[in-house]
Design a protein around this nucleic acid. Sequence first.
DNA 1: TTAATTACCTGAGAGC
DNA 2: TGCTCTCAGGTAATTA
Length: 261
Amino acid sequence: MPELPEVEAVVKGLQKNVIGKKIVSLKAKRPKIIVGDAEQDLGKIRNVLRRGKYIILEANAFIIIHLRMTGKLLLVDRKIKERKYVRAVFLFDDDKKLLFDDVRAFGRIVIKQDYQEYLPIQKLGPEPLFKNFNFDYFAKKIENRKAPIKNILLDQTVIAGLGNIYTNEILHRAQIDPRKSANKLKKKQLQTLISETKNVMKEAITAGGTTISDFRDLSGKSGGFQKKLEVYQKEFCVCGEKITRIKQAGRSTFFCAKCQK
DNA sequence: TTAATTACCTGAGAGC
DNA sequence: TGCTCTCAGGTAATTA
């Protein structure tokens, strides 16, 4: 499931391989996958950006892609036969095509004249690795939030790009109980949480993301961060304690009741 | 305003 | 073998 580091790996691949290519056509293979006018002359891809978990292709219009759960972008030869989970196809003016492959069909492609007019992007919080994600910002943002800190970290309007895997890992490294109300965190815990968020993101980006079952980069390669996971889908903590598994915000939370307070 | 729940999706695996 | 049920989770919409 692509979170910020996985999306970053895809964006780097796109920057290297599709900038300068002209989009001849963009076709959806099933309804509702593409939102906006895909019939217009999209022209050449001038740049590829990332904001949170959104991939943004800058051409004559902005093509905003969200991979959601199982989405993948694969750059292949035009003659390659597409498997049944390909939901949309970008044809280029050379011998390549870009496949939007998504088993669960949750992913979306949105076309806008300006990506900044797209409301979900407007509402995104700061990037975790930017300077504006800092103690002052975060403390103010959560001062009245009673929801569990895990849920707050998943809130894209508070911080952009975190998903279930990394929030589990970040809270374990920061030794914070995921059930703890956000406004009950002590100053020191908040500082640790911010620095571990940045550390985990940096390490995961360097490793090319995390592959649990689906994630692949542009060339179909897996990430490497899954080897560094300490709690997500684990039986035991490094301290020897059995990992506790609960449900929060409809998702599985893994934590060590001994290390995380 | 905030928090919690549900719909959207389909493959994998468990249980019968 | 084949059926049903549950689970995986990011986001938007809905409800409390």
